[in-house]
Design a protein around this nucleic acid. Structure first.
Length: 266
DNA sequence: CGGGTTTGACCAGCGC
DNA sequence: GCGCTGGTCAAACCCG
């Protein structure tokens, strides 16, 4: 990366090649300029990554969305608002609204594990199981059994597109504390209205796109990297994009989205 | 024996 | 009205 930057931008000097005390003010200014240039390029890359990830997430969530045509009245609580249950941005022709206190949890499991169990610290009683039309794997229905007055239900089903991904939909809010000391297995938890799987908070992307603070961006980059590295395919896409960026930088200065778009589309 | 799971039956919303 | 579908019920069963 460093060498590539130096190669593609010969106006920048390599301060690592000489002791710091021998560095002149002009060279320091040039180094500062180089760092700003790198930061700008990284920011551009992250913006492209965010943009492509949104497209990627929309496509992914659209495929695995539970296409329920039933219980319309159950899902139509906040009349007047139309939002996509996954990304919260789309507004397809058909209204698709969900209870405001509903959340989705994605849990990565062993593909060979056929159990529909999501450990979240609460005690659940299974009251039904059903094979749905849009997914060959059965959907399990659970009620919170810790308290008879607790209204919370959850539905657990494998993702249609990824057998190693369990999707749990929680409805309602617990009126008690978790019943056990188990560590909640909710690494990918997200309220409905945000992206599923390898959740990267849209707020993080927005902040990366909008804010100027370099320190803040560094923290955000770390958060983003943490989120993205949970998804192997996206990690691979990111690596390919960066590699492509380095290789293409000289000839395709303005085609930021080319590499990652190509990878994501494959 | 109590609590949880399984599974077929039943109910209700929706499109045609 | 009918068929399809998702959600729920409840009897039978299992297990510690």
């Amino acid at each position: 990366m460093e060498k590539a930057l130096l190669q593609t931008n010969p106006q920048f000097i390599d301060l690592n090649s000489k002791p710091m005390h021998e560095t002149s003010n002009d060279e320091l200014i040039q180094e500062l300029s180089r760092m700003k240039w790198e930061n700008k390029k990284l920011n551009e890359l992250l913006t492209v990554v965010c943009r492509n990830y949104h497209d990627f997430a929309k496509k992914d969530c659209a495929e695995e969305l539970f296409a329920s045509r039933k219980r319309k009245s159950d899902q139509l609580e906040n009349s007047g608002h139309i939002f996509h249950s996954c990304c919260g941005e789309c507004s397809p022709g058909r209204p698709r609204e969900i209870k405001s206190n509903t959340s989705r949890v994605h849990v990565r499991i062993d593909p060979s594990d056929t159990s529909l169990i999501v450990k979240d610290g609460y005690q659940w009683r299974k009251y039904g199981q059903k094979v749905t039309r849009d997914n060959p794997s059965p959907r399990a229905y659970y009620k919170c059994s810790h308290s008879p007055t607790c209204p919370v239900k959850k539905k657990v089903q494998r993702s249609a597109g990824d057998a190693s991904l369990l999707v749990a939909i929680y409805e309602g809010q617990h009126n008690h504390r978790p019943s056990s000391g188990e560590v909640p297995a909710t690494p990918l938890r997200s309220p409905v209205g945000q992206q599923p799987a390898a959740n990267i908070d849209p707020a993080i992307c927005r902040r990366i796109e909008n804010e100027e603070s370099e320190i803040d961006q560094q923290v955000l980059v770390e958060q983003m990297a943490s989120s993205l590295t949970r998804n192997h395919s996206f990690t691979a896409a990111l690596v390919a994009a960066i590699t492509g960026r380095i290789l293409d930088d000289g000839s395709e200065e303005n085609d930021d989205s080319f590499s990652i778009s190509r990878v994501l589309s494959e």
